[in-house]
Design a binder for these strands. Structure first.
Length: 669
DNA sequence: CTAGGGTTAG
């Protein structure tokens, strides 16, 4: 109101006197420009002038739609029609935009009918709005039908369709459309590039990413902050974080999204400590973190397994009086659970007002108990969730099934799976993957294979991957090869599956087959992801890579790892050499094993921490068989509790046993 | 006799 207040009365008065809809429309436009659509509406309601023209209605509908009041927009549209005023090519785009924003497909289809009846279906703007509406309502095919039939298309129409594919996670189609656009000789603009960059990020294709980047540079689009942001995200999703950082560093202007994109890039690529450095830099630069920033950093802590940093972040939020909304609180619960502090996670969950506990809140807690191997507690939480009247979703069942799998609760897991339909959740490939994992774990390889073969939806890499993992654990070369064949077809660029299959061969000393797979990987330019482990005690956080020689104290750690191996061998530890992929001398194999990142971290923990304390280590991949066996000996010989969180779950080592009941696998060497 | 559409972090 403030500045516009006096205008309001001034213009309202003159509007009433003049009954001039033109002037009224001008005032409405002015109010809308300042985002004050309420005042706009009151002018609209006051002007009882020439409402028979659609102009005033259109202006008001536009003000409303742009002001984000989508329901009011639709109400206005209804009143307009009831007043007998015919909508036109200026009306439809805004009404459709309102439908799109709220995913109101039924209403959208009604408006589509109106469009056809009034004969505006050949208007460029109306068609583009229809394409957009169907896309935002999740009906991409319908969008394409309209797009495909358009007699004329301008750049905005193309961009709308490209964005539609990108949003529907069909990046390949988005990129193809972009190429077609160029063949038609239309020059893309900054907005198009933002969408294309996002699509290429989904593809994860570094070469294409470089082309998009070059395209943006050549056309001067990089001066646009949103283009820079999209390119940062694109490189990060392709795994090229350093390139992303370069673009970030070269930006002349940055906004909150630039920082968030870069933070998220580090987080997605496992570079959590870099994420924290950047977060501090962000604070120093005076850019205030928004809720998304905190969400990214909290989940980085969860990924990294750093309780200390997570706590610091939580304190920061309390200190700065940042509003912790439901989403952020769920992320904090998740972080505490994944950092090994189930008590705090549970306490935080209990502190959430029951009314504010949503499906996601229950999901993170169920998954938290699951990864710790507490299957029964997870099932118990699920009953409580139902008693509380909260509807489970597909994530709830993923967490539950994997909880059952971790705890070896096969009967319960099968029941859960069968019960999904009752909760109107259709099993997706990931649910089948959990089942295959669960059966495979129990050695029921045949059942697992039947499950894969008989699933009513297409098999994806996660189900075959679960089967391959089971074959590794139970040493089934033949079934493993079947799984691997499908995997190499589905995901030829995924290094992990090559490594897993070579592990199976290596365990049976089939070195020729191992060598062939290694060569395949080389030919395709694939590299296994590098392993790292993190250990923290008190306020210290230390990270180790495999065969890490960058720490100033590395020699000391190496000596400790070697001496640990010697001591443990005296009480029966036998290095599991099948965890080494190379065909090298036995003695070298032992060295390779000793320098696994998780062993370095545990050795460092033994050196530096008080013997009464447990050793907490996080590994970004899955713990290997040999490390798993070694830590059982460590827990026994040194009478120390060792807790390792790998990519899959928590392993609590105590008195020579592990809470996972030895269901682990050496994905990588 | 006015007015209009497509984008990035989660």
């Amino acid at each position: 109101m403030h500045r516009l207040g006096s205008w309001h009365y001034h213009f309202r008065a003159s509007c009433i006197i003049n009954s001039n809809s033109h002037l009224g429309a001008q005032v409405i436009i002015k109010y809308a420009k300042f985002g004050d659509h309420k005042s706009a509406r009151s002018v609209f309601d006051t002007v009882h002038g020439d409402k028979s023209s659609s102009f005033l209605w259109n202006t008001m509908i536009r003000a409303c739609a742009n002001g984000g009041c989508h329901i009011e927009t639709l109400e206005l549209y209804s009143s307009m029609r009831e007043s007998g005023i015919s909508p036109n090519n200026y009306t439809f785009p805004f009404v459709l935009k309102a439908c799109a924003s709220k995913s109101l497909i039924i209403e959208g289809k009604v408006v589509h009918g109106d469009v056809i009846r009034t004969g505006f279906d050949l208007d460029l703007y109306v068609e583009a709005a229809l394409v957009d509406m169907y896309a935002k309502c999740g009906q991409t095919d319908e969008s394409f039908k309209i797009f495909d039939k358009m007699p004329m298309r301008d750049l905005v129409c193309w961009t709308t369709m490209i964005t539609a594919y990108e949003q529907a996670e069909q990046p390949h189609k988005a990129v193809l459309l972009f190429q077609k656009l160029q063949l038609e000789g239309v020059l893309a603009d900054a907005v198009t590039i933002v969408s294309v960059a996002s699509a290429v990020g989904q593809l994860g294709h570094t070469m294409r990413a470089k082309i998009v980047h070059a395209f943006a540079i050549c056309n001067g689009f990089l001066e646009d902050v949103s283009v820079g942001n999209a390119i940062i995200a694109m490189y990060a999703k392709c795994g090229n974080v350093s390139k992303a950082r370069l673009v970030f560093d070269l930006m002349e202007v940055r906004d909150g999204i630039s920082w968030n994109s870069m933070l998220s890039g580090y987080s997605q690529n496992g570079q959590a400590s870099e994420a924290f450095l950047l977060f501090e830099e962000m604070l120093d630069s005076g850019c205030k973190p928004n809720p998304v920033t905190l969400l990214i950093t909290v989940s980085a802590c969860a990924y990294l397994g750093s309780q200390h940093l997570g706590r610091k972040l939580h304190d920061f939020m309390i200190d700065k009086k940042i509003k912790i909304d439901a989403t952020l609180r769920n992320a904090l619960v998740d972080m505490y659970a994944k950092c090994g502090d189930l008590d705090t996670a549970t306490k935080m969950f209990d502190d959430i007002h029951p009314r504010e506990r949503n499906t996601a809140s229950w999901n993170v807690l169920i998954s938290g108990y699951g990864v710790h191997g507490y299957g029964n507690e997870a099932l118990n939480l699920f009953s409580q969730m139902q008693q509380a009247g909260i509807k489970p979703d597909h994530i709830t069942f993923t967490s539950l099934l994997s909880a059952c799998s971790h705890a070896g609760l096969i009967v319960e897991g099968r029941k859960c799976f069968a019960d999904m339909k009752k909760h109107s959740v259709t099993p997706q490939a990931k649910h089948y993957a959990c089942m295959v994992d669960m059966l495979g774990r129990a050695g029921l390889l045949h059942d697992a294979f039947v499950m894969v073969q008989q699933m009513p939806i297409p098999q994806n890499d996660s189900v075959w991957g679960a089967l391959l993992l089971a074959c590794r654990i139970h040493g089934d070369i033949e079934l493993g090869e079947t799984a691997a064949r499908s995997l190499f077809q589905l995901e030829p660029e995924h290094a992990g599956y090559y490594v897993l299959m070579s592990n199976i061969y290596a365990a049976s000393n089939r070195w020729q087959a191992v060598g062939k797979l290694r060569q395949d990987m080389k030919d395709r330019g694939l590299r296994k992801p590098s392993a790292f482990s993190l250990i923290e005690f008190g306020k210290e956080v230390h990270g180790f890579f495999a065969a890490d020689r960058v720490k100033p104290y590395w020699q000391e750690v190496y000596r400790k790892v070697e001496s640990l191996a010697v001591e443990m061998k005296m009480v029966g530890y036998v290095p599991d050499l099948s965890c080494v992929l190379h065909d090298v001398e036995e003695e070298d194999k032992e060295h390779i094993l000793n320098y696994h990142s998780e062993k370095l971290a545990v050795a460092f923990g033994i050196m530096k921490t008080n013997p009464e304390l447990s050793i907490q280590v996080t590994n970004n991949l899955r713990i290997c068989n040999d490390c798993h066996s070694a830590f059982k000996f460590v827990s026994y010989v040194y009478q120390r509790k060792v807790v390792v969180r790998d990519a899959n779950r928590f392993h609590h080592f105590q008195d020579g046993t592990c809470s996972c009941n030895d269901y682990c696998s050496n994905l990588y060497d």
